[in-house]
Every structure is written in structure tokens, then in C-alpha cells.
Amino acid sequence: MLPELLQGSDAGGFLIIQDSAGCSGRHLLKSFINAALNREEAVHVLGFEISEEELKEELKGSLTQRLHFHDAFTDPLGWTDHPAFTVHQFGLEELTRLVKHTSHAKPAILVIDSLSWILRHVSPPVVCRTLQQLKKGGAVRAIIGLLHADMHQRGAVGSVCHLATSVITVAPRMTGDEALAKITKRSKSGKVVQDEEIFSIKEDLTVIVMSKPSHTGLKLTDPENQETDPTANLTFNLHLSDTEREAKDKLALPFVFSKEKKTALLHSGPGSGRILYEPDVNDDYDQEDPDDDLDV
């Protein structure tokens, strides 16, 4: 599935590369940029975390002619008098102007490096609304964003990933030059396909899919998603043995009446007490108004 995503056949798609401190996804992001340039597509990069020189260092010189870098790395918050691009310019009108300023006839691909920088300074609802407008506006053909999941709350990460048509979560492997890609792809019909692939990236940014992961060995899990047993460290036992469970089943509960107890309560036997009332001649009792003696 990873080679299929690299081909970029889905128009109007939104791809998120989700990484963490344990495994960076920037090298894979560069592979997507390189693949788009090889397809002779125009690529606009919002660079918040690396400079233009560092990005183009691994790309071929002839391909970078269609690469448009918008420098948000030098002054991302607009502290100087003439910033190139700031995080506060992340909006539909400004991004549309930047993309359409070039002379390319076809819609370009917008690469955001990274969404985490924007989410740190812009509220998640505003970021999600802008991304949704870009997907439907037609100014860009596709959006590719890098997201550092361990920098944000799970709700913010989930909101942004909910808009994505594809999410690639990278995780480390035992071998240094290999990584695990956990892919979730949503089709236009609503069908969700999930897959896992082991891949490596060559020096020319070509992605090589090695194999499917083997689940018989060590399984990589997210520490936040690990289920812990709440009864593991208790000083008393919450589980019953077979003997204790049998004794519990035989115990008669005080609020459960047996058949014999119900019969004894409903049918009074000899010697049981009864209350008999005979009205006195002086009783002022009106059959038509039983409450006549009450001061109401």
C-alpha cells in the first residue's frame, strides 16, 4: 500500500505522516516530495522545522525547479519586520495566494512541515477548518503533512487525522535502517483499509517495501494504548476460588424470599394475631365523608 500512496493517484487527498520522538517521519516525507517531483508536479512546502537548504540537500538539482519553499523556518512567529511566512498566515486566502502565485497550470501539492508547529500556535478547530477548505477549494491537488503525535493531546491528533484520507504511522524496528509503517486508508465510499509494512529508504529517497511484519515476535505497541490491569497491585484478592463460588451460590440473601417463607407470610396459621375494630356508638363517622372529623 505504501508504493500506491507514493504514486499520488488520489486527487483531493490528505495524507498525514505521523511520527514520534522514537522514529522520525521526515525522511519519508522527503520521499513523498521526491516522488511528486519525479511525476513533474509542482510542490509547495511550508517549512517550519528545517531550512530550504537542508530540504534540497537530498533532492536532485534538476527536480528542485518545481519545488517552491515558503520559509517559515527563519521567523515562524513574525518577530522581524519582514518575515517570509508566519504561522499566523495559515489560512485559506493566504495559502491559495501562495499556491496560485506560480505559473503552473495544474493544481500543486501542498506539503506542511510540520502540522505540529501550527497546532502549537493555532487552535485545532481553526487548523481543521483550513485543511477542510483547502481539500475542497481546488487550489491544491493534495495535501501532505508531517505530525509529531507525541507533542499534542490525543484529541487534537484525532481531530486532524479524522480529516485525512490516509494516515501513515511510522515506528522503529530492531534494524536501524528499517521502519514499520502502519497505514490507514479511507476511500471515498467510506471503506477503511489498514495495513502494516516494513520499509527502508535508499539514498536517492526511493522507498523499498521489505515485507509484512511478523506478529510472532516482539510486538510494538504504543505505551499510551497499553491496557493495564487495575487489580494487579491490590492488597486483597478480588477473584473467588471454586469452593468460595460454590458457597456464595448456596447463601440465602436476606431480601430473597423462599417459597416456604412466602407461604408463611401470606397464609397466617393458628395463633397468629389479628386486629379487630368495632365502631363505638359515640363515634362520629360519616360514611359519605370519612374525613369529616379532620380540620382541613
Rank of each mutant, 00 (worst) to 15 (best):
L238F: 15
D280C: 11
L240P: 01
S166H: 12
E53T: 06
D10K: 15
P124Q: 09
A108M: 04
S62K: 09
F85Q: 04
K60E: 10
D292A: 15
H82K: 15
H104V: 08
K188G: 01
G269P: 04
H267C: 09
G190I: 03
P124H: 08
L180M: 10
N225G: 07
E196D: 14
Q89N: 13
E41Y: 02
L5I: 14
E244W: 09
A156L: 07
L37Q: 11
I17D: 05
A252D: 13
L115A: 12
V140H: 03
I198V: 13
I144N: 00
V111R: 02
L147G: 03
A11Q: 10
F73L: 01
A11F: 06
G273P: 02
E54T: 05
C128E: 11
E4V: 15
N34K: 12
R39D: 05
G137E: 05
G25E: 08
I183H: 02
T231R: 10
A171F: 07
E278G: 05
A84Y: 05
A149C: 07
G145N: 01
L5Y: 08
H148F: 09
G47L: 10
H152C: 06
S116P: 07
A35R: 11
V170G: 03
K188V: 04
K60I: 02
V43M: 08
Q226I: 15
K188M: 03
S211E: 13
Q194W: 00
S241W: 04
G61P: 05
K259Q: 13
N38V: 11
P125Y: 06
A11E: 11
G78I: 02
L238N: 12
V192H: 01
L67C: 03
T216F: 11
T235H: 15
